[in-house]
Nucleic acid binder design. Structure first.
Lengths: 340, 340
DNA sequence: CTGAAAGCGCTTACAG
DNA sequence: CTGAAAGCGCTTACAG
């Protein structure tokens, strides 16, 4: 058998690699999986053969013997278009997919079925995946909490009520994110700071409102008025309008999302209020809403793509049976632009 | 062995189902795969056992013996956030994922790596998937064309230049879509019809411009002015402004995307031009830009989710070795709302 | 029409 | 440190 014989075969097997390298397929397998016990010269020979044959392990065979599907699911709401309209989710998915691709896990999107709500659960518990990432809206989260002891599962948002059993969540510290933004406003000398909060039936909405209040209280200032939006640009524009209608003197606004801040900016422009001169605006989220706003927004970058990666990383640890902390916070940084 | 024994085991196997049903695992396999040769009473017994044990076939084992990965990739650009900002893609993905989930194929997102452009090709040719759906931007498409004879592949857009070998594309007929919208304007008595076209380095941009011109020529009208956008709302607003600046009398505009139409609407509002009374507006795409516009847009619904499903369906036929036509057109319908 | 058996391509005790 | 062998859970010729 010459090396030509291997190059002809469509998909080389372990056997073929072993023959080329002059070892058994057991040894090839050990090298590929990094079992440190193999003699260095054999490792080299095997690696050379792998390169030469462009050997790629057969996932199915590996999966069968390891009794792992090598697949993880990302569960997202059926209303995909609305879901993706928020750049946040696209970024999480990107980060998760990119990280997964550096692994031998495949990330598959599992879209919840509104017509058959149980379908997702059946899929997850039917042995189709090794674990799942839950990005569902808050209303749906509780139904997955109980699956946590059937299949490894990591949540992208903190559930609203205390979960019925220990779960794992990866998220930014929303209280701190809002506090950082608000403190920045305070450091720049603003004293009458209003907020456009997110919806108060979401953890992010509540936490960011809380963070705003915390920073203001720390500084011994009086909290400005509060108006609530739904994280969208239009809701931000309307909330800003209501803030203005109140007539309270304000010199700054903390908006709980960049999308709402971009809407607020339009309202301010319509009322000829200069930003940041008359009113400074600071927000949370760094995406194209923050960069394309006029002026560009000073905001807290949540590094959402990184969050996606950490979600996968955490899930893989869980799948490997490691001890995982209930809450993993992802880091954030303040990005100064021209709205403050 | 009693049925309890099976219920205890975590994941029942074919063997277990066979034992319960009193047949061999070969027979169970035949029933599950619908091989018509099995005696009806055995089929029933097997199905009952499958239900009772909640048997789910092991994908890896099946995949190993069938020499199929049972997995298809959807290739999308790395700039995910921008990609998803266009609701079109989210819808395609939703449609594709939902259809795939009714199959035993898994759809995985393959995000192109900008830093290592060859990574995607290696992945696709490395036996990781049975086939691929390409949603990449036009500039990237050519690099996948040549993979078409290595791995089954279906494209979501028509390539700009004639491909170097036969490929398969699933798309709406963009010429006809634009013609339908423009004819509707004509039927309503409009005679001076301008267009905001898409970018003319995309097939959709060119084809929709072509369709607009076709409808106008058919009706023996004189084509109105043309301004080009990039499919985004902001570009639509600017194009509308240029259209107005030209000063040519126009009584209607065909916008090549709902996003651009929604931008155009803002410009018209700023100039106090009534829609549809002064200027009627008809577009292509039915998504939240069309429904939330003021007034809501009369537009051609491309049924993009269906396109996603047809993409998968077509790819599966290709994978199964069927003869597949080079171009599969997905149907569309005019939705009348209040902008015309 | 149905079953016993081989085999898909890996991993991993078990010997040596 | 390495190889022969068993086995992961299926599908499918091959007999009968």
């Amino acid at each position: 058998m010459t090396s030509e014989d291997f190059l002809l075969g469509d998909k080389p097997t372990l056997e073929a690699v072993g023959a080329l390298a002059g070892v058994s397929r057991a040894t090839v397998s050990r090298v590929i999986n990094g079992h440190a016990t193999v003699k260095p010269e054999l490792v080299e020979a095997v690696n050379a053969a792998v390169d030469q044959l462009r050997y790629v392990p057969n996932r199915a065979a590996r999966s069968l013997v390891r009794r792992r599907t090598q697949m993880i699911a990302m569960v997202i709401p059926e209303r995909t278009a609305e879901f993706f309209a928020d750049p946040y989710f696209a970024e999480v998915i990107q980060g998760a997919a990119m990280y997964a691709s550096s692994t031998d896990q495949t990330l598959s999107l599992l879209i919840e079925s509104d017509s058959d709500p149980d379908k997702t659960r059946r899929y997850l518990t039917g042995g189709n995946v090794d674990g799942a990432l839950i990005l569902s809206h808050h209303s749906r989260i509780s139904r997955y909490v109980e699956l946590s002891d059937t299949i490894p599962m990591v949540f992208g948002v903190r559930p609203m009520e205390t979960p019925s059993r220990p779960i794992h969540v990866v998220d930014v510290d929303n209280v701190e994110a809002a506090a950082i933004a608000t403190r920045h406003l305070i450091n720049r000398g603003r004293t009458r700071i209003a907020t456009i909060s997110g919806p108060l039936d979401t953890a992010a909405g509540i936490d960011r409102l809380h963070g705003w209040r915390t920073a203001i209280t720390e500084a011994a200032l009086v909290p400005g008025p509060i108006e609530t939006g739904t994280f969208t640009p239009a809701s931000g524009a309307e909330a800003m309008q209501r803030l203005l209608d109140r007539g309270d003197p304000i010199d700054a606004v903390f908006a709980a999302s960049a999308q709402m801040a971009s809407g607020a900016l339009e309202t301010l422009r319509a009322h000829s209020r200069a930003v940041p001169d008359d009113i400074a605006l600071c927000s949370v989220d760094n995406n194209y809403f923050s960069t394309s706003a006029i002026p560009p927004l000073t905001t807290v970058d949540l590094d959402t793509a990184n969050k996606g990666a950490v979600l996968v990383k955490t899930l893989l640890r869980l799948i490997d049976g490691a001890e995982v902390e209930p809450f993993t916070a992802v880091p954030m940084t303040l990005i100064e632009r021209r709205s403050v």
